[in-house]
Design a protein around this nucleic acid. Sequence first.
DNA 1: TGCCCGACTTAAACCCAGTA
DNA 2: TACTGGGTTTAAGTCGGGCA
Length: 278
Amino acid sequence: MGKKYSKKEVRSKWNDITEEPNLIYRNGEKIFNYSGFVKGHPALRYFEYISKIMLEDFDVLKRIGETPGNLRKDKSFDMDHEGTLDISGKDEDLKITERRLAVALYNSSHHFRFGKIFDYETPLKEKEASGIGEIDLLSKRNEEVGIIELKIGKSQKGETLFRALMEAYTFTKLINKRKEKFIKDFGLKNEISFRPIVLTLTDSFCAENMHMLVNGNAPNLKDLIIKMNAHLAKIEILPFEFYAFDSENPALKQDEQGKIIFENSKFLEVRVMEYDYR
DNA sequence: TGCCCGACTTAAACCCAGTA
DNA sequence: TACTGGGTTTAAGTCGGGCA
């Protein structure tokens, strides 16, 4: 096993990252992705303990996304993405990556349970070098816009539901600060509401975490999500939803126009699981 | 002015080493 | 020896400066 941290050490790491609320998801990336157990507590997963800390320090979570910082103001949120990636000189068998899957989902134009993808890698910041990053995917279902965090990593590589949760929570609160602009940039109706969503594949570590959540094996994480939802409701943001494609990593390819697409379009018919934790 | 190239940025993917 | 956290590399984009 690698290094283990005690409760005290975990709490200290949390205290180190609370200074800049909008960047907690990023500065806490390491501890949020820990998949093991707290030192001296063989049944207590790090994300369960950190959830407990966050429930106690919930004021910090309220502050996330409250100050716009370098949030996009003048430039359009709509980057006119074309569904292509510059993969010249890379492996020709096009092994799957998160980014490539995101683009393939966009290019599919398919209506999934969680909606139809209408953009990917949507920038949040005005200038480069301002910390906050990009939204993996945007989906639309009736009058709802899904702020989707995509996670496909297997257990060995980390990538917990907890980390995805923090990203989706932060990005949704931030984009909500620029709702009018977002609606105008993408030519949407005024009635839309945002909803944070985590999307994964059933063989990922993230999906394992979703199972723990619905099976009652992550009580603190569940309480945290419920509390986040209650807070989001006050600012007219819809509660979290969690989905997984019931599939292993699908094969991808590049078409003549350079667009990333699914090698077998049957992937689009694969079952999409919803993990109902409520 | 337009374009080419290199530096920088973010997040993901990979690889390694130490420990239970 | 398997696991997992730490550290490094890769991926892909964006920006800015130099130069024709």
